[in-house]
Design a protein around this nucleic acid. Sequence first.
DNA 1: TTCATATCTGCATCCATACGCATATTATTG
DNA 2: CAATAATATGCGTATGGATGCAGATATGAA
Lengths: 116, 116
Amino acid sequence: MKSCSLGVDSQYVELAVEVFSMLADATRVRIILALRDGEMAVGALAETVGKSPAAVSQHLAKMRLAHMVSTRQDGTKVMYRLENEHARQLVADAIYQAEHALGGLPAHHRTEKATA
Amino acid sequence: MKSCSLGVDSQYVELAVEVFSMLADATRVRIILALRDGEMAVGALAETVGKSPAAVSQHLAKMRLAHMVSTRQDGTKVMYRLENEHARQLVADAIYQAEHALGGLPAHHRTEKATA
DNA sequence: TTCATATCTGCATCCATACGCATATTATTG
DNA sequence: CAATAATATGCGTATGGATGCAGATATGAA
């Protein structure tokens, strides 16, 4: 079963690219980080990440279609939360790779698994 | 130590975005998959991923700057190889997220860790 | 209740920017 | 010279963000 479904011509390549494209934006990464500790409304997220509510809403719409976040109505507000732990894990792994790219002193090889 | 270095305003956000941007391209993902089993030359990679050698060379230049791949001269050819295991891990995690997004039947929760 | 207003969220449009690719050229190695 | 790889330029496309507007909901007044 080891790496059997991931050839260079695999259909999963396109899917992985979509996931990476979804995360290749600072605002969306900040949204993920902001949602680590629990659900938040659009307005609060906008203030946290430093963008307009409309812009954040558009990002959340994309992330909702990608099943990265899910919503819950709360009066006039809509609470957003992460739908699973994969986004967090991806961000953590990206940090690991970035540390390699920077100094070559990978902190994640000295400490235990960070929780991103 | 849990999530201490990853606030929404962390410098690492920009770094993570660069890593994700690097992986948000089907050709580069295919290059990573092609390099799983060992080093390859630019021409061979080009034929494997179905792009021109010039295009592949440009992708490899970016990946080299990001310390994702490293090179070794072999006559007129230049052999490329993955510099660490993080790229593979990221691709694997992206597949996991994509599986969630698709059907909601996460195969990685039933089988053991795939090796991307 | 009914109406008006304010707030919050979502959607369409426009613009500037960045990216991937093809082509052509140059460099390096044998 | 031959082969391989790296680079420069131009083109077409995609994307993020701002702006403006529309829909939904809660609050308050009459």
